[in-house]
Amino acid sequence: MTDSIHITRRGGQKSRLTLKAREMMEAWLFVSPTVIGFIIFFLGPLLAVAYYSLTEWNLLTQQATFVGLANFENALLENPDFWHVVRNSVIFALGLVPLNMALALTLALALSRPFRGVVFFRTVFFAPVVTSAIAWAIVWKFMLQGEGGFINQVLALVGISGPNWLREPNWAMAAVIITRVIKMVGLNMILYIAALQAIPRDYEEAARLEGASRRQIFSMITWPLLAPATLVIMVITTIGSFKVFDHIYQMTGGGPENGTLVLAFYIYQQGFKFFNVGYASTLAMIMFAIVMVLTLVQVALRRKGME
């Protein structure tokens, strides 16, 4: 097939249209694996989940009945668990995103210029990113045990009686957020470092010559120039915080007292533990909507801020 194109072009007799049509066909051939896979494993399932959300469907008995919006009513109006779960997810995101980004930016500012040891520090702060979330959660779960846990034993050495981290709902949420931040902050740090290094040094030099302080340089020059990177990082981190699953699964299993039961875990629980496929699909649709809205809001806010 490709040979014939070659011949046509050499001949140069055929019209330009045919050439264009061939180019188009070739292009679609190049993208066809991606497109076919995308339709089968992503677009189709996305449409399917929209339909499932309108059914009552038991995974075990495989019986499905169309129930309209009953699942949505149940989730939004009747089931108190749902709002508890949404609240947990929001708290998780509100805790994780600012903490992660502030820490990432601080580290990036400290590590964006070369100095002795910079590679060491970057390597260290990034190491948890390449580690599996399950392994990370396993280790922290041990270290956060009650009295016998390493963290509390160390705290005891300096006279602090640490909480039973993973058995108290609020402490458990805090523990899950903090350990997740430590796991993921390296990625954002690297993204910020890349963005910082893309800022021309002249700007800063010029500002310094005019007598601007470090703080002024940061707030007047660096921070505004980082805005596009900040937006990307914020979107990625927010979406990431809503889909956190393995970390919660391993560290708390949603407990204690449902204190860390977040949306992604709740979907898994309803669909695959209680076999409520329909209700779980409804939750998945709601999650989809939340993530989409959040992304659009962040993009819009940023655009407004830039004008």
Binding site: P45, I239, A264, Y268, G271, A280, V291
Partner: peptide, 9 residues
């Protein structure tokens, strides 16, 4: 879109 959304279908 998080993977959790399409995992059931």
């Amino acid at each position: 879109v998080p993977e959790e959304v399409t995992i059931i279908p």
